[in-house]
Protein backbone atom coordinates (compact mmCIF):
# COMPACT_ATOMS: atom_id res chain seq x y z
CA UNK A 1 0.00 0.00 0.00
CA UNK A 2 2.80 2.38 0.93
CA UNK A 3 6.48 2.07 1.71
CA UNK A 4 7.18 5.24 3.63
CA UNK A 5 5.94 5.55 7.22
CA UNK A 6 2.91 7.84 7.28
CA UNK A 7 0.82 9.53 9.95
CA UNK A 8 -2.34 9.36 7.89
CA UNK A 9 -3.45 6.62 5.46
CA UNK A 10 -6.36 5.51 3.34
CA UNK A 11 -8.32 2.52 4.56
CA UNK A 12 -10.65 0.63 2.29
CA UNK A 13 -12.69 -2.20 3.73
CA UNK A 14 -16.13 -3.75 3.95
CA UNK A 15 -18.19 -2.87 7.01
CA UNK A 16 -21.44 -4.78 7.45
CA UNK A 17 -21.45 -5.57 3.75
CA UNK A 18 -20.84 -2.00 2.54
CA UNK A 19 -17.57 -0.87 1.01
CA UNK A 20 -16.11 2.13 2.79
CA UNK A 21 -13.07 4.27 2.05
CA UNK A 22 -11.71 6.86 4.45
CA UNK A 23 -8.54 8.73 5.26
CA UNK A 24 -7.55 7.94 8.88
CA UNK A 25 -4.75 8.89 11.27
CA UNK A 26 -2.37 5.93 11.80
CA UNK A 27 -2.95 6.05 15.57
CA UNK A 28 -6.74 5.64 15.34
CA UNK A 29 -7.94 2.26 16.56
CA UNK A 30 -10.67 0.31 14.81
CA UNK A 31 -13.24 1.01 17.55
CA UNK A 32 -12.92 4.78 17.11
CA UNK A 33 -13.03 4.37 13.35
CA UNK A 34 -16.33 2.52 13.64
CA UNK A 35 -17.80 4.85 16.25
CA UNK A 36 -16.55 8.24 15.08
CA UNK A 37 -15.87 7.96 11.36
CA UNK A 38 -18.75 5.61 10.53
CA UNK A 39 -21.09 6.53 13.41
CA UNK A 40 -21.61 2.89 14.31
CA UNK A 41 -21.84 3.44 18.06
CA UNK A 42 -23.10 -0.04 18.99
CA UNK A 43 -19.48 -1.09 19.47
CA UNK A 44 -18.58 0.16 22.95
CA UNK A 45 -15.29 1.19 24.52
CA UNK A 46 -14.79 0.19 28.14
CA UNK A 47 -11.19 -0.26 29.15
CA UNK A 48 -9.60 0.62 25.81
CA UNK A 49 -6.69 -1.74 26.45
CA UNK A 50 -7.95 -5.22 25.73
CA UNK A 51 -9.32 -6.55 28.99
CA UNK A 52 -13.10 -5.99 28.98
CA UNK A 53 -14.39 -7.18 25.60
CA UNK A 54 -16.97 -4.38 25.17
CA UNK A 55 -15.39 -3.45 21.82
CA UNK A 56 -15.60 -6.94 20.24
CA UNK A 57 -16.25 -7.04 16.47
CA UNK A 58 -15.73 -9.66 13.77
CA UNK A 59 -12.82 -9.30 11.34
CA UNK A 60 -13.01 -11.79 8.47
CA UNK A 61 -15.40 -13.78 10.66
CA UNK A 62 -13.15 -13.96 13.75
CA UNK A 63 -14.03 -12.09 16.94
CA UNK A 64 -11.36 -9.53 17.92
CA UNK A 65 -10.95 -6.54 20.24
CA UNK A 66 -11.40 -3.44 18.10
CA UNK A 67 -9.46 -1.36 20.67
CA UNK A 68 -6.37 -3.51 19.99
CA UNK A 69 -6.32 -3.17 16.22
CA UNK A 70 -5.49 -0.13 14.11
CA UNK A 71 -8.12 1.23 11.75
CA UNK A 72 -5.54 1.04 8.94
CA UNK A 73 -5.17 -2.68 9.65
CA UNK A 74 -8.77 -3.12 8.54
CA UNK A 75 -7.60 -2.37 5.01
CA UNK A 76 -8.89 -5.10 2.68
CA UNK A 77 -10.79 -6.83 5.50
CA UNK A 78 -14.43 -7.65 6.16
CA UNK A 79 -15.66 -6.06 9.39
CA UNK A 80 -18.95 -6.96 11.03
CA UNK A 81 -20.40 -5.12 14.02
CA UNK A 82 -23.42 -5.51 16.27
CA UNK A 83 -25.41 -3.30 13.84
CA UNK A 84 -24.80 -5.51 10.80
CA UNK A 85 -25.21 -8.79 12.61
CA UNK A 86 -28.47 -7.61 14.21
CA UNK A 87 -29.90 -6.44 10.88
CA UNK A 88 -28.94 -9.65 9.09
CA UNK A 89 -30.61 -11.80 11.75
CA UNK A 90 -27.36 -13.67 12.51
CA UNK A 91 -27.76 -12.92 16.23
CA UNK A 92 -31.50 -13.49 16.45
CA UNK A 93 -31.42 -16.67 18.58
CA UNK A 94 -28.89 -15.20 20.98
CA UNK A 95 -30.73 -11.89 21.23
CA UNK A 96 -34.02 -13.67 21.93
CA UNK A 97 -32.36 -15.83 24.59
CA UNK A 98 -30.75 -12.75 26.21
CA UNK A 99 -34.10 -10.95 26.34
CA UNK A 100 -35.96 -13.98 27.73
CA UNK A 101 -33.47 -14.37 30.56
CA UNK A 102 -32.87 -10.68 31.28
CA UNK A 103 -29.22 -11.14 30.37
CA UNK A 104 -28.76 -7.43 29.63
CA UNK A 105 -29.23 -4.69 32.22
CA UNK A 106 -27.46 -1.45 31.30
CA UNK A 107 -26.45 -3.09 28.02
CA UNK A 108 -22.93 -1.70 27.90
CA UNK A 109 -21.30 -5.13 27.62
CA UNK A 110 -24.06 -6.71 25.55
CA UNK A 111 -22.75 -6.18 22.02
CA UNK A 112 -19.41 -7.71 23.02
CA UNK A 113 -21.12 -10.58 24.83
CA UNK A 114 -23.29 -11.33 21.80
CA UNK A 115 -20.38 -11.29 19.35
CA UNK A 116 -18.23 -13.54 21.54
CA UNK A 117 -21.18 -15.90 22.07
CA UNK A 118 -21.83 -15.80 18.33
CA UNK A 119 -18.30 -17.08 17.66
CA UNK A 120 -18.98 -19.96 20.04
CA UNK A 121 -22.46 -20.91 18.84
CA UNK A 122 -21.46 -20.58 15.17
CA UNK A 123 -18.65 -23.08 15.73
CA UNK A 124 -21.32 -25.52 16.96
CA UNK A 125 -18.82 -26.94 19.45
CA UNK A 126 -20.54 -28.74 22.32
CA UNK A 127 -19.44 -27.35 25.68
CA UNK A 128 -20.19 -27.91 29.34
CA UNK A 129 -21.39 -24.99 31.45
CA UNK A 130 -17.95 -24.50 33.09
CA UNK A 131 -16.40 -24.47 29.62
CA UNK A 132 -18.90 -21.85 28.45
CA UNK A 133 -18.04 -19.75 31.51
CA UNK A 134 -14.33 -19.99 30.65
CA UNK A 135 -14.98 -19.12 27.02
CA UNK A 136 -17.03 -16.05 27.98
CA UNK A 137 -14.75 -14.99 30.86
CA UNK A 138 -12.83 -12.50 28.70
CA UNK A 139 -15.95 -10.31 28.55
CA UNK A 140 -16.72 -8.27 31.64
CA UNK A 141 -20.18 -7.24 32.85
CA UNK A 142 -20.70 -4.91 35.81
CA UNK A 143 -24.44 -5.54 36.14
CA UNK A 144 -25.82 -9.01 35.64
CA UNK A 145 -23.57 -11.24 37.72
CA UNK A 146 -23.10 -13.35 34.57
CA UNK A 147 -25.48 -16.23 35.35
CA UNK A 148 -28.24 -15.01 33.07
CA UNK A 149 -25.73 -14.48 30.25
CA UNK A 150 -24.29 -17.97 30.61
CA UNK A 151 -27.86 -19.37 30.81
CA UNK A 152 -28.70 -17.69 27.50
CA UNK A 153 -25.55 -18.85 25.73
CA UNK A 154 -25.98 -22.36 27.07
CA UNK A 155 -29.59 -22.52 25.84
CA UNK A 156 -28.65 -21.44 22.32
CA UNK A 157 -25.66 -23.78 22.20
CA UNK A 158 -27.88 -26.69 23.32
CA UNK A 159 -30.53 -25.96 20.69
CA UNK A 160 -27.84 -25.69 17.96
CA UNK A 161 -26.13 -28.95 18.85
CA UNK A 162 -29.53 -30.70 18.83
CA UNK A 163 -30.34 -29.57 15.28
CA UNK A 164 -27.96 -31.54 13.03
Amino acid sequence: MTNEPKHSLTVECTVNGERVRREVPARRHLADFLREDLELTGTHLGCEHGVCGACSVLVDGAVVRSCLMLAVQAHGRRIETIEGLSDSGALKDLQTAFIERNAAQCGFCTAGMLLTAHQLTASGEAMTRPEIREYMSGNLCRCTGYHAIIDAVEAVLRSKSRTP
Binding site: N3, H7, P25, R27, H49, V72
Partner: peptide, 20 residues
Protein backbone atom coordinates in the same frame (compact mmCIF):
# COMPACT_ATOMS: atom_id res chain seq x y z
CA UNK B 1 -6.53 5.69 26.55
CA UNK B 2 -5.90 6.62 22.92
CA UNK B 3 -2.57 5.57 21.45
CA UNK B 4 0.10 8.25 21.20
CA UNK B 5 0.88 9.56 17.73
CA UNK B 6 3.09 7.42 15.47
CA UNK B 7 3.77 6.78 11.80
CA UNK B 8 2.79 3.46 10.23
CA UNK B 9 4.26 1.43 7.41
CA UNK B 10 3.27 -1.94 6.00
CA UNK B 11 6.17 -3.58 4.12
CA UNK B 12 5.16 -5.98 1.34
CA UNK B 13 7.93 -8.52 1.86
CA UNK B 14 10.27 -9.80 4.55
CA UNK B 15 13.24 -8.15 2.82
CA UNK B 16 11.46 -4.81 2.79
CA UNK B 17 10.50 -5.19 6.46
CA UNK B 18 14.10 -5.92 7.50
CA UNK B 19 15.41 -2.99 5.43
CA UNK B 20 12.84 -0.73 7.01
Amino acid sequence: MKYPDFAYVRPASLGEALDC
